[in-house]
Design a protein around this nucleic acid. Structure first.
Lengths: 202, 202
DNA sequence: AAGTGTTTTAAACATTTGTTTAAATATTAA
DNA sequence: TTAATATTTAAACAAATGTTTAAAACACTT
């Protein structure tokens, strides 16, 4: 089952791979062209400039990624189940896009990124059902008093960090791809247990 | 109290700042020269090439950073106290070098980094007193059975990730520098409590 | 003061890299 | 088929960037 892609999408797919892996500065147009098996000039023919190509890809990829994250955050599932589900699904999501986290963080070294503002990340987080749910659980006395941002970044830290440090982990733990996958599967159990153990203590 | 630095160290300090902030590809020699208030040619006069300058800085900075981390890992303090201490001191250490984590991870996108091998990171981790201690506590039945790597990367994830995502956190949480500092100070309490809550459950 | 070696400078150089051009080729429409 | 249009190519271009050069400025010794 061969995929016959037209030139424009071939370039876009190639650009995605290369940008994701090497970042904006590290990516050369000739590298994209080679990866897409296409003449260099065609990159500019279809996408005016490197920057424009980058922006369209960056926004599209991140939008898709972030969209999936938000969807889950707003799902109306009981609190504890949701913690488990979030960890499980975020792990899978990043497993499918393992380069996304470092890419996003690398391209957001400076404060005040336009992308996040354009996507209303702040508002989305603050009005997310998960945030509301967390506050309710605290009010009901079911879980310990804690700022939502700490919970969110504890989840993210525990799930995302291993992917960021993946070459290091693989090296220290002598893991191949399968080994790393197992490591992350283990975390799917450890991380929610850790979070709940903390949150439930009064 | 003015510091009168000679040209070589001025260049080196400038290079440290610029490399740390923009990474290898993102850093231009002319930018370093300007930052050091020095003629472009002097950079190559003192350090043969961009790559060589980078390497010397990269190794030196990371060595110092990693050295401090290891020291703490090998300190002979009771287990629970140590967890608290590690979180506390790592937070402070990174607060002093907030760009180091993203820098190290960005420059280690590929597997098999020489730097880590040269510094015997693997061996150091595996033979660290902390690792031994963890196994002993498990054997004594004081804490839950868990692979040391999970504990280490849970600590790192919880401590380091917020720094990696700092521009994002600051934006979402409307924090200035002081706000972020407070956020991290709060984590100094939350993270060890979370870890211990998990580890102590049997 | 002259001589010696070091440091600094402006300029040039060579390479890389993003972009454009103009001609060649393929595709589509009349 | 023919003419118009779109796509592709090799080549050139211009700007950015790492590096080198050769001379000037400086510091130090004798």
């Amino acid at each position: 089952m061969e995929k016959e892609l037209d030139t424009e999408t071939r370039i876009k797919e190639a650009a995605k791979r290369v940008f994701l892996k090497y970042g904006y500065e590290g990516t050369k147009i000739r590298q994209i062209a080679q990866e897409a098996d296409v003449n260099v000039a065609l990159v500019n023919y279809y996408f005016r400039s490197k920057e424009q190509l980058f922006k369209s890809i960056y926004m599209e990829s991140f939008r898709a990624f972030f969209g999936k994250m938000i969807l889950l955050l707003n799902e109306e599932t009981p609190f504890e189940v949701k913690i488990w589900k979030i960890v499980d699904r975020y792990t899978d999501l990043i497993m499918e896009n393992p380069l996304m986290p470092l890419f996003v963080l690398s391209e957001n070294r400076e404060e005040g990124s336009l992308l996040f503002k354009e996507m209303h990340v702040k508002e989305v987080i603050h009005t997310a059902y998960f945030t509301k749910q967390l506050k309710e659980e605290i009010a009901k006395g079911n879980i310990r008093e804690v700022a939502p941002l700490h919970v969110i970044f504890s989840i993210m830290g525990n799930v995302v960090f291993p992917f960021l440090a993946r070459p290091i982990i693989s090296y220290i733990g002598d893991m191949d791809e399968e080994g790393f996958r197992k490591f992350m599967e283990e975390r799917k159990k450890i991380v929610p247990e850790m979070l709940m153990a903390y949150l439930k203590v009064r």
